[in-house]
Amino acid sequence: MCIRLLIVICTLVSLSSAFAAEYPDKPVRLVVSWAPGGAVDVIARKVAQKLSEQTKGTFVVENKPGATGTIGTQQVIRSAPDGYTLLALDNTFALLPFVFKKLPWEQEVPFIPIAVAALQPVVILVKGDSPYKDLASLVNYAKANPDTVTYGTGGAGSAPHFSAEAFQQAAGVKLMHVPYKGAGEAMTGLISGQIDMVLLSTPSAVSQLKANRVRALATSGNKRLASFPNIPTFAEAGMPGFGITNWVGIAAPLGTPKEIVSRLNVEIRKALDSSDMKDFLGGMSAEAGNLEADGFLRLIKEENARWAQVAKHADIEKQ
């Protein structure tokens, strides 16, 4: 009896490891629920390239943009859980419940998080020749003149909008929201002097920071950015309570075999450890997200809880 059980277990184990070793034996679709060219897309493509090299398989990026990423997400979570359809998603996912009245899924996390590909600190930016030289001067001015300082976002209910709401609550100020179509347009608005500030993740900011067209007053995260050591952290600038970090991660439909999920987690983290990936992420002042799959799940749940708090005190109308 015991021996038979052992044999069964052995067979199962060898089967599953063989399964994981053969994966992928056909092309894997990595669905990006945003338009091509953005930060999520660019990171997903780099990850797909590395995974293709490492596994000798083919990882293809497919863009399914629309409805704040819900169209692509919905499609992936309804796909066969065989590891051949994956989702690339970002921090926007965690705030969807506070943007939409109704979502096309019921669970809090309707997929298996696999790995975090990149962590992107959020920086607060003003124009290069702005009178605000540090965070304190901006906050003091905004406190004295509520609804005067304008901030741009990629639209109502976008991630920069939520970040700015969180900032206002943490700093105890009231700013004026100027929505744009996409974070890129908000950045154009900032450097052409239409608005006073934006809160964006580092990839959108790096090139303008280098050219001194914009000035960063503070960056999120526990330590300063390696590429811009002059920018203080929010804690150093006097706002220890503000700690939003954006992320880009990879997930699979619920029910995807454990072996595949852990194999992908290992492969992605191996990719993140490679020197060209480090250079690539370093170029946009982002960091590799060296997390276990469980850690990623915890991250999403923590984010969800945080945004629930922010949304409660903000006037963000649900769709």
Binding site: V42, R45, K46, P203, V206, S207, Q208, K210, A211, R213, D279, F280, G283, M284
Partner: peptide, 10 residues
């Protein structure tokens, strides 16, 4: 960006 170039004034 994928090629490691940050497009911008620089």
């Amino acid at each position: 960006i994928i090629q490691g170039i940050q497009p911008g004034p620089s």
